[in-house]
Amino acid sequence: MSTFASTTPAAKTSGSSAAPARADSGTRRRGLLRWLFVAPALVYMALFFGYPLVRNIVMSFQHYTPKTYFTGEAPFNGLDNWRAVFSNELFAGSLWHTAIFTLGSLLGQFTIGLALAVFFSRRFRLSGFVRAILLLPWLVPMVVSAVVWRRILDQDHGILNSALHAVGLTEGGVPWLNSPGVALLSAILVNIWIGIPFNMVILYGGLQEIPRELYEAASLDGASPWRTFRSVTLPMLRPVITVVLVLGFMSTVKILDLILALTSGGPADSTQTLGTVTYQLSFLQLDFGQGAVVGNVLILISAVFAVLYLRANRADFGKGK
């Protein structure tokens, strides 16, 4: 009897200590499984995003030429590439053109896209068919769109100038792509045409998520349509607007194929952007070090707006909680 009494507490003690150990083991196993599921994505990001990013940063501090591909020699030259790029007038002009092109494109795409989204949120006959037609500019490859618009905007044989002349609005052909003062505006208008469908689709989806009860309450309070739009629609649509603007910015600021196919950066470098300057330095002048510098500037600008996007989303999430 005494032996049984003396061994029972020890058994209970060992059992109670084994339970936390098993719990810790289960927690570690679940944590390991989580990492195993995430590992393929991390490896993919490291190989296809992390390595090129690091390589591009290193290249911007090297004298990297076509000869390097054969000899493997790319001596470090400190900040020489950065000084050469920042003292280049072409870079300063492209930075200004990129800002104008990006802001003009975003303003036009978002404004028209939001107007169309609000218009189509009121169901009517054939609305689905018309929305599908408006998606075509988004589905066509950008190079194809640029080539088509280059023909439309041709000064001598373009359809647009022919139509303007037919209705008596112009006497001669407007140099849409041949004038330094007009070419950048033409590129912005073409990019607006291409980006409207994306803005419309995303904003239309956001409008469908707004509860109808809010509009009914605003109507009962006697709010005008503009007041309802300003006090109900815009606040409820804010997270979607943030996504549209940030994604639109990140795709527009680095645009290359549209400008190359439309104007090739001309005339007189009036449509040179950071993307085209990167292409020109790297693949025309074959100075990969300076091209990497401009690429890093683009990455830095995109990263800043990505951080702003994440902070805005975190703020919206905090308000939702």
Rank of each mutant, 00 (worst) to 15 (best):
L203R: 06
A261K: 02
F249C: 05
S87P: 10
G72S: 11
L106Y: 00
L308M: 14
H97E: 09
N178T: 10
A18M: 12
N161L: 07
V147A: 10
A166L: 13
G295M: 04
L114D: 04
R238T: 07
P180Q: 01
S2L: 11
W193G: 01
V130A: 04
I112G: 08
E213A: 07
T228S: 15
L203V: 12
I57V: 13
L262R: 00
V240E: 10
M142K: 09
A303P: 05
L47Y: 14
V43R: 11
I188N: 00
L116F: 06
A315Y: 07
A115P: 03
L203D: 11
I301E: 01
G320I: 10
D156V: 07
S264K: 07
Y204L: 10
T170Q: 06
R125W: 13
G104N: 05
V240C: 10
I194Q: 03
T271W: 03
F305Y: 12
N81C: 09
V244P: 03
K67Q: 14
F91P: 00
S94C: 03
R230D: 09
V243L: 06
V58I: 13
S270M: 03
W149C: 01
D156C: 08
Q290D: 12
L136A: 06
L42A: 09
L220P: 03
V144T: 09
